[in-house]
Amino acid sequence: MDVLDPEQLTPAARRILDAAAVLFYEQGITAVGVDLVAERSGVTKRTLYDRFGSKQQLVAAYLLERDRRWRALVEQPYRDAPDPVARVLAPFDALETWLDGATRGCAFVNALAELPEAGHPGRQVVLAEKQWLIQLFADSLREGGFAEDGALALQLMCLHEGVLSLRGTAPGVDAIAAARSAAARLLEG
């Protein structure tokens, strides 16, 4: 079964995915069973399996929906950026909105830690998201006329991912401002 497209959900599937999103993020993917997701969404386990096929597919749909929301949040300031530097920094600017209320850091990194199987469909969604972001950095650097051999895109990715890790481990630290400032300095050099 292919990963269910979150944009093509029935009302019951939407309730399932919404409940799963909260539970998976707050409690962890492996800690949450389909019984709890079904209960919280007000459906039977049979309905959950009819809509998603398996917990693996539900996890993948949850991550795919997060990925789509994240990309949309980054792409708007990226398109609207007034100059090449602002375009490169767009993923940092999106973090403030994205992380509002986030208590456990990056759902993608958390999922990657919980999904060690290379063939898990959720793991594939996470890896694709990370690859997309580093490619976005590389493309924006190239389009902006920055000397780019891959190292600068990787450095920006490391700064960006550091913010996501610190959000869960060092609350109260303004990691977004620190990383954005460091990224801007890298672009000056």
Results as ranks from 00 to 15, higher is better:
Glu65Trp: 08
Glu188His: 04
Leu63Ile: 06
Cys106Tyr: 02
Tyr62Gly: 03
Leu115Ser: 06
Asp2Phe: 06
Lys130Gln: 06
Arg87His: 15
Gly119Thr: 12
Thr169Phe: 08
Val163Pro: 03
Pro82Arg: 15
Gly28Thr: 05
Leu36Trp: 01
Asp5Leu: 11
Leu63Met: 10
Gly105Ala: 01
Glu143Lys: 12
Val173Tyr: 15
Arg46Ser: 14
Leu154Ile: 06
Ser181Glu: 14
Pro11His: 06
Ala86Tyr: 04
Arg14Met: 04
Ala60His: 03
Pro121Met: 14
Leu136Trp: 05
Ser181Asp: 11
Ala12Pro: 00
Leu73His: 00
Leu166Gly: 15
Gln131Gly: 13
Gln27Lys: 15
Glu96Thr: 13
Ser41Ile: 00
Glu161Met: 14
Ala72Met: 07
Gly105Leu: 00
Glu117Tyr: 09
Thr30Ala: 12
Pro77Val: 03
Glu75Leu: 14
Ala102Ser: 08
Pro121Asn: 13
Met157Tyr: 15
Asp18Met: 12
Pro11Ile: 03
Pro116Ser: 11
Phe52Thr: 06
Leu23Arg: 01
Arg68Glu: 05
Lys130Pro: 00
Val88Trp: 03
Ala102Gln: 08
Glu7Tyr: 07
Asp67Met: 05
Asp50His: 11
Gly53Thr: 05
Gly168Trp: 03
Arg14Lys: 15
Lys45Ile: 10
Ala183Glu: 03
Val173Glu: 12
Gln56Glu: 12
Ala151Ser: 08
Val126His: 05
Val37Leu: 08
Val109Phe: 14
Pro82Phe: 12
Glu65Gln: 13
Leu187Val: 09
Phe146Ile: 13
Arg104Val: 02
Glu39Cys: 02
Leu99Ala: 09
Ala113Asp: 11
Asp93Ile: 08
Gln76Asp: 12
Thr169Arg: 15
Leu36Gly: 00
Ser54Cys: 04
Asp5Ala: 12
Gln57Asn: 14
Ala90Pro: 07
Arg14Val: 01
Cys158Ser: 15
Val85Tyr: 12
Ala60Asp: 02
Asp80Lys: 11
Phe92Trp: 08
Arg14Ser: 08
Thr30Tyr: 10
Ala72Tyr: 07
Ala31Gln: 14
Met157Lys: 14
Ala179Asn: 01
Gly33Lys: 07
Arg180Leu: 05
Ala13Trp: 01
Ala61His: 09
Leu154Ser: 13
Ser165Ala: 15
Leu156Pro: 00
Ala21Gln: 12
Ala12Gln: 11
Gly162Trp: 06
Trp98Ser: 02
Cys106Asp: 04
Leu152Tyr: 01
Leu187Arg: 09
Thr103Phe: 07
Arg79Trp: 10
Met1Thr: 15
Val59Cys: 01
Cys158Leu: 14
Ala178Pro: 03
Ala153Tyr: 00
Thr44Asn: 06
Ser41Leu: 01
Arg46Lys: 13
Val32Ser: 00
Asp83Thr: 07
Leu17Met: 06
Ala102Met: 12
Leu133Ala: 04
Val34Gly: 09
Arg14Phe: 03
Ala178Tyr: 06
Val88Tyr: 04
Ala183Tyr: 02
Val22Ile: 10
Glu129Leu: 13
Pro77Leu: 08
Phe146Glu: 07
Arg40Leu: 09
Gly33Asn: 11
Leu58Tyr: 01
Arg15Trp: 07
Ser54Met: 04
Ala61Gln: 07
Leu152Ser: 01
Val43Thr: 14
Glu148Arg: 09
Glu117Phe: 09
Ala31Gly: 08
Glu161Tyr: 15
Ala19Lys: 00
Pro91Thr: 04
Leu164Ala: 08
Ala178Glu: 07
Leu95Cys: 04
Leu17Phe: 07
Gly101Leu: 11
Glu7Leu: 10
Asp80Thr: 10
Val22Ala: 09
